[in-house]
Design a protein around this nucleic acid. Structure first.
Length: 277
DNA sequence: AATCTGCTCAACCGCGCTGGA
DNA sequence: GTCCAGCGCGGTTGAGCAGAT
């Protein structure tokens, strides 16, 4: 099985987009809508790969994109979201209307990681840095060093675990019932949408650690990634959650414990408030 | 004025997931 | 059940710019 070659292998244009290309892409999408990215370039008369077109549209040409500096409020929100979600840029971007995941990722890598480091906080783990760790870093080495520092000397309980396993949909969950059932096999590897009694759609993401141990977290999002509302929904309905082996209850309890033992309850509260804005 | 150095961010790359055939 | 196109995501790169030397 092979993936079709991308632009690098079929002689298509690469690099910066020209105003003419932008205009062609914008015009086409305004007329025909997004989607069908693979065939779009041909139909739009562009010598680009679909992936490149999609990226250009999503990150730059979309009309709802907010240009300009990140505000202090956005800055603060990004930091707090990152402390909970880690490098889940698309989820963080979902909380910042008009901002793209790429923009936030870049902003984090250039501004915030440096800012946190200067404040004596490890941008990767959120831990306080020792004086040794605080040194000024060269930009080119930044990513490598971040990787090297990853998980080093971190004993704090984190809600976020890197590299979650994305999970498949479950078929066993009734969509119009307040009670939903998960079997443990699916629950350990699944991302699912369930319907709450209030008919609010909830996305549940179960994340497990890289080493496959049982310490993980469950993140609930509403349609607009509303972490707090959805979590509180499940909290108030946790007696409805069943699994064949009690796995999900256990996981959920662990998740609540993680929230409870978090050494910054006030911060979590304010975070919750900010999410509810 | 020329060169160096560091920073920014648009764009690319590779991987994994989903859903249809 | 398998294959594959389509898509989305996170990590990384490198061109271009600005400030320092």
């Amino acid at each position: 099985m092979g993936r079709a070659p991308c632009c690098s292998k079929v002689g298509l244009h690469r690099g910066p987009w020209t105003p003419r290309e932008d205009a062609l892409l914008t015009k086409y999408i305004q007329a025909h809508g997004e989607g069908q990215w693979r065939s779009l370039p041909k139909r739009a008369g562009l010598l680009r790969c679909g992936k490149s077109c999609r990226l250009r549209w999503m990150n730059y040409l979309r009309p709802d994109i907010k240009r300009g500096n990140i505000t202090p409020e956005e800055d603060d929100l990004i930091i707090r979201m990152h402390s909970l979600l880690g490098n889940r840029w698309s989820l963080i971007a979902g909380r910042l209307p008009g901002r793209t995941d790429n923009e936030i990722k870049n902003y984090w890598n250039t501004h915030l990681s440096k800012k946190l480091r200067n404040e004596g906080t490890d941008p990767k783990t959120g831990d306080k840095l020792t004086e040794k760790k605080k040194g000024k870093k060269k930009n080119k080495q930044k990513n490598k060093e971040n990787n090297n520092n990853n998980n080093k000397g971190s004993e704090k309980t984190l809600v976020y675990l890197p590299k979650p396993i994305r999970v498949k949909a479950l078929s066993c969950i009734p969509r119009s019932d307040s009670t939903f059932t998960l079997d443990s096999n699916s629950a350990s590897t699944s991302q699912e949408k369930v319907q709450s009694p209030e008919a609010k759609e909830v996305n549940m993401v179960w994340e497990v650690g890289n080493d496959g141990d049982n310490v993980g977290n469950i993140v609930f999002f509403g349609q607009d990634h509303d972490l707090v509302n959805s979590a509180s929904y499940v909290e108030s309905h946790s007696d409805h959650v069943h699994t064949d082996h009690g796995t999900l209850e256990k996981l959920y309890e662990e998740y609540l414990q993680l929230l409870n033992v978090e050494d910054k309850p006030d911060e979590l509260d304010s975070f919750a408030q900010s999410l509810l804005m």
